[in-house]
Write a protein that binds this DNA or RNA. Structure first.
Lengths: 207, 207
DNA sequence: ACTGAATACGAGTAAATGCTCGTATTTAAA
DNA sequence: TTTAAATACGAGCATTTACTCGTATTCAGT
């Protein structure tokens, strides 16, 4: 058994971590503007004020950048999800429940414009597609559990379809949510909730 | 005034038209698989069994291929739209109206898998983005008119928002519709109609 | 059969892209 | 102060890409 703290361990991480964050910020912008294929690593490095060599000191390749970016998004999203999909919300009246679920998601998506672009870009590598799947699966499971708590009569299949439909309905409206000016947002947001409420209410036996 | 039918007019179009169709078929596949930026013109030519030179005999550049492809889709879609958004549907009961509107759209999207991929790819050139806008605008206007016929009490603003929401809700569910096996389709299709019905019914004062 | 335009080819070009590498600088620890 | 790893640079390489061009073949009309 040797000492697992090496004699000369990794040194300065403060500088490196900062660079990584800068590079990911730049990558988020370029990916959002150009898509995964359209984004060039040189452009990402340049926007971060770094050289290509520096970029490749921290990321194996272009895909690793996207992976790290997705990981960062997923981590940030976990908090929003924590609020949105807390099982406690299933005890609230439907309107309040939708507020509690959708408001954090809307806020997150608007605060992270690159997230939805990258996550919904179908032209990423299979590995990257795999990286975002667990997050989506987790979301579906949490919605499933909330549906189960609210409507125990539903079959597992019905719950699955309903959860998937709800997610897709929301995703469909996301472009409107993203494009809305600050003063239009309440209107769009309310309409989104109305739509989801109308869809879900008869399923969970509430009107 | 000279004769506007030239002495030696364009000759063989049968061969050329066929090649163009083949190239567009190939382009539809490659664009769908790789996206606009990811698709290479050489790959498109190769898949059509043609050489790059032949491709550039018919298309000025890569973007012109996408433009022609969109034009072809839009033309084909016009028929489906003709059915879907016939003002006559506004006289039908809501359920039948939704059948009449959504069934042709669903059939079209499933018959033309490349359509929705290309149309929803945000990383195309501005010119191409402009090419698809008229079709979308027309669709919104037709829905607007149907809403007006059914619910004369609505303000123009309310109709606009409702039409846009409805389109986005449908588009959100499209991935499910595209991914569904033939035997799952009726279930997904019915659920889509349920969702849209639930959203629209209270607006047009029907339940 | 002859002509010329339409169609076809595919090697080739200039530019861009992902990524490397040799080298220089900064910094935490000895 | 010395040392060595971490960080940084940017010219450059190999590959890919959109697109060209010189040339060859197919056809419609005469």
């Amino acid at each position: 058994m040797t000492d697992d703290t090496p004699k000369t361990p990794r040194k300065r991480q403060a500088r490196g971590e900062k660079r990584i964050a800068e590079l990911l910020d730049a990558a988020a912008e370029v990916f959002a503007e150009e898509g995964f294929k359209g984004a060039s690593t040189n452009a990402i490095a340049a926007r971060a004020g770094a050289s290509p060599g520096t970029l490749y000191q921290f990321f194996r390749n272009k895909e690793a950048i996207a992976e790290a970016l997705v990981a960062r998004y997923v981590e940030r999203l976990r908090e929003a999800h924590g609020e949105a999909f807390d099982i406690e919300v299933s005890k609230l009246p439907l309107d309040e429940m939708l507020d509690r679920m959708l408001d954090p998601l809307i806020a997150f998506d608007r605060a992270n414009p690159g997230f939805y672009v990258l996550l919904s870009d179908p032209h990423v590598s299979p590995e990257l597609a795999g990286a975002k799947r667990p997050a989506q699966k987790l979301m579906l499971e949490r919605i499933d559990r909330i549906l189960e708590a609210r409507a125990p009569g539903l079959t597992a299949e019905e719950r699955g379809l309903t959860a998937e439909m709800a997610v897709h309905l929301f995703r469909g409206v996301l472009p409107m949510i993203m494009a809305a000016e600050e003063d239009e947002l309440p209107r769009v947001s309310a309409e989104t909730k109305r739509a989801l409420r109308a869809y879900i209410a008869p399923i969970i036996g509430e009107d």
